[in-house]
């Protein structure tokens, strides 16, 4: 019984780990790569009137999500002309995501509080 239970348990965990690996190998593949180059890095926090991290380095194809944790609304707006991306106004706890499909330096700011600036380096 002990042996059989052991086999059962180990099969269960093997299956679970395999399933996890398969999941990771699928749609989250990009995430894994991004975490290798910039560990902290797919989320940008908006807090105390600043973007954190202010500079983020990610591989091409990465989706970056900004979350507003301030009591005041903010925006995430590219400084490029034409603008590469532009969020609607984000109230407290609201999010904005953008997928960077091209390499380059993407500067952005809060169009409501323009002293707030950030950069995404896509490599």
């Amino acid at each position: 019984m002990r042996v059989r239970r052991g086999v059962f348990v180990s099969s269960f965990w093997t299956a679970a780990v395999l399933a996890g690996v398969l999941l990771l190998a699928g749609p989250l593949n990009v995430t894994v790569n991004a975490q290798q180059t910039a560990p902290a890095a797919l989320a940008v926090k908006i807090d105390n009137f600043s973007f954190s991290p202010a500079t983020l380095t990610v591989p091409v194809g990465t989706t970056v999500t900004w979350t507003n944790q301030d009591d005041i609304p903010h925006t995430v707006v590219s400084t490029d002309d034409p603008r590469a991306f532009r969020s609607k106004v984000l109230d407290t706890d609201e999010k904005f995501s953008y997928t960077f499909t091209k390499a380059g330096t993407f500067a952005y700011f809060c169009s409501v509080h323009p002293k707030m600036t950030g950069t995404v380096l896509v490599k």
């Binding site: 500067a107 952005y108 700011f109 409501v112 323009p114 002293k115 600036t117």
Partner: peptide, 17 residues
């Protein structure tokens, strides 16, 4: 008295006032 109402909240530039 001459009153002048101005708009200084549009077309704000990154890093600016």
């Amino acid at each position: 008295v001459h009153f002048i109402g101005l708009v200084n909240v549009l077309n704000l530039k990154a890093g600016g006032l």
